[in-house]
């Protein structure tokens, strides 16, 4: 028998089949270890579900359910309703987990419905910017210029041609009490946001940036480093917002001096084709600059 971790603290067990260096594994640990054992999770189809629940094994220490790709929000709505009906709602966190595909694309309608109905459910999106489970296909979360297996770079293609869908801002527009973005590179910030969301009544949305060594093309030890670079360059801005007035947005990690985006892009194979195209780098840089200005840094 294997050595045992301290299961009283660790809600996400070892032995799961995630790739070495999986950013999602780090994110799930940070979220669940903050939420604690009185938590029920409904999850969409994706890497996380496949790598953690191959029968008869499960990496989950908390009650967990997967039904289909597009409906963690609806399944969680049913769970919350049942807990209320059974008089067991108090003290239990109901979380919905989705990858970017199950959140930005196929699960978007169910997410919107859940937010609009005002369920006391905390939705956590683990965003690795493509359909990784099916082999790195383009998603509306994929950033401009990224080469994926369905948006390959080529003589007539720059890779993904559209900018990343602003999912967290769209969730804010649902007038929910709390929305935040977070990164695995900043665990204290992430856990604080999880705590805030859990302490607020009503639906909350947490958008977590999770680099993927397999899909992005980098060595497994650099997962956290790349997440850090995304924040330091302004590619992924960490913020939180109570309510829907963007004037009140609070940027929680402001680099003193922003690094140029090239520092981030050059670390990953998915952007490799951009490196000899200074006009494209310039374009990405100016879009990041504009965005950071909007966020006030």
């Amino acid at each position: 028998m294997a050595e045992q971790c301290d299961v009283t603290k660790e809600m996400f067990a070892s032995g799961h089949r995630g790739c070495a260096g999986c950013g999602e594994g780090i994110a799930v640990r940070q979220v669940l270890n903050e939420a604690g054992p009185n938590t029920i999770v409904a999850e969409v189809t994706g890497c996380l579900e496949v790598m953690t629940t191959g029968y008869p094994e499960s990496a989950w220490e908390i009650p967990w359910i997967h039904a289909a790709f597009e409906n963690a929000s609806s399944v969680a709505s049913g769970i919350e309703a049942a807990l209320i009906a059974k008089g067991k709602r108090k003290g239990v966190n109901v979380l919905a987990f989705g990858g970017d595909g199950g959140t930005f694309d196929i699960g978007f309608q169910a997410l919107s419905g859940m937010l609009e109905r005002g369920h006391n459910i905390k939705y956590v999106c683990f965003d690795n910017e493509a359909y990784m489970n099916t082999g790195i296909q383009r998603c509306s979360s994929t950033p401009y210029g990224a080469s994926t297996t369905t948006s390959p770079s080529g003589t007539c293609s720059i890779g993904e041609s559209r900018p990343k869908k602003p999912i967290a801002a769209i969730c804010v527009a649902h007038d929910i009490p709390y929305t935040a973005t977070a990164s695995i590179a900043h665990p204290k910030d992430l856990r604080k946001k999880v705590r805030t969301a859990l302490d607020v009544e009503g639906p909350c949305f947490l958008h977590v940036f999770v680099p993927c060594p397999t899909g992005w093309g980098y060595a497994s030890e650099r997962t956290v480093e790349i997440a850090k670079l995304a924040v330091q360059t302004g590619v992924f801005v960490l913020w939180e917002l109570e309510g829907n007035d963007f004037a009140n947005i609070k940027v929680t990690k402001k680099p003193k001096e922003r690094k140029p985006v090239i520092e981030y892009l050059k670390t990953q194979r998915r952007f490799k084709h951009l490196l000899d195209k200074p006009e494209e780098i310039e374009k990405i840089q100016s879009e990041v600059d504009e965005k950071c200005e909007r966020y006030g840094f």
Partner: peptide, 23 residues
């Protein structure tokens, strides 16, 4: 393992039975 009703796994954290250290 025996199959359970509805493929429900009653054994939380049982992924520990698989040692990924061999990777």
């Amino acid at each position: 393992a025996k199959v359970t009703v509805g493929a429900v796994n009653p054994d939380p954290g049982s992924s520990r039975n698989y040692e990924t250290g061999s990777w």
